[in-house]
């Protein structure tokens, strides 16, 4: 049952991604393709939600219990945002194109992640650590999608192609400001996630006599520094638009690298 739901969610995410892409880059706006994409995404979210709920009921491990559950929750959260934007209508709905492949990757990656808790944290503190990290990463995923859409839209404007994608993607400044806000929302959450992660490091170091910070902590701090720089440079040096979008994408790539680290090195140090 769980396997079936997972396969259905993955297939529907894939189909929705293809349909949304077709709708975005197609020469003519097809209402049918647009509706099918939204229906596909909605189906994927429902299957995904059902899968996670059944797993919770079966294993007793909640959405923030560990990296396995956390990643799946993250994917669901981001897909939920994309679905909300599509149901609301307007040009921001096109963000789904950038979000759906990421969601699919996260969902599949979650299956490979170690189901055991990756930190010595437990109880509420583990929930806060995983929950805030996931919220921060979800916000960064949205910021990444907005930044990617910004670069595509900017290219359309600069190359003077004012039909098709230009008319379907949101205005540049809307993308820029929304990306900034997503980072501003995600950074405090990630700060909390890193702080609780470091606390776990301290607990472990005290208990086992190992260094407080692991390579994952350093990478996480690197991600934090990149996103913090995007915000600071925007305020101080007027880094907006193109530069901010590049910074956001670099920051997100490093966040993905941290997550990837979990699979390369497992839950250990």
């Amino acid at each position: 049952m769980l396997g079936g739901l997972l396969a259905a969610a993955a297939l529907l995410y894939f189909a929705a991604a293809v349909l949304m892409l077709t709708h975005l880059v197609g020469a003519a706006t097809s209402l049918a393709a647009r509706r099918a994409a939204t229906a596909g995404l909605a189906g994927a979210v429902v299957a995904h939600l059902a899968h996670d709920a059944l797993r919770w009921a079966g294993t007793g491990r909640g959405p923030f219990a560990g990296i396995h559950e956390g990643l799946s929750t993250l994917a669901l959260l981001v897909a939920g945002v994309a679905l909300g934007l599509r149901l609301r209508g307007g040009r921001l709905e096109t963000l789904g194109v950038f979000v759906a492949p990421v969601t699919l990757t996260m969902l599949l990656a979650a299956q490979g992640a170690d189901a055991r808790p990756s930190t010595p944290l437990s109880g509420a503190l583990l929930g806060v650590h995983v929950g805030s990290t996931i919220l921060g990463t979800a916000a960064f995923t949205v910021a990444f999608a907005l930044a990617a859409a910004y670069l595509v839209q900017e290219r359309e404007v600069r190359q003077k192609r004012l039909r098709g994608m230009f008319q379907r993607l949101p205005p540049l400044e809307v993308l820029d400001v929304a990306s900034y806000r997503s980072i501003a929302l995600g950074l405090p959450a990630l700060t909390l996630g890193i702080a609780t992660g470091l606390l776990a490091g301290v607990q472990e170091a005290v208990g086992r006599g190992v260094p407080i910070a692991s390579w994952r902590h350093y990478l996480a701090l690197g991600v934090w520094a990149v996103f913090a720089s995007v915000l600071v440079l925007r305020a101080v040096a007027g880094w907006r638009g193109h530069r901010a979008a590049i910074g956001t994408i670099v920051g997100y790539a490093s966040a993905v690298a941290v997550l990837f680290g979990y699979f390369v090195r497992g839950a250990g140090r």
């Binding site: 839209q153 404007v157 004012l162 008319q167 949101p170 205005p171 540049l172 400044e173």
Partner: peptide
């Protein structure tokens, strides 16, 4: 009208 469309595409 194209200039206005473009301005909206840039600024919203």
């Amino acid at each position: 009208s194209v200039a206005a469309d473009l301005a909206r595409g840039i600024f919203g």
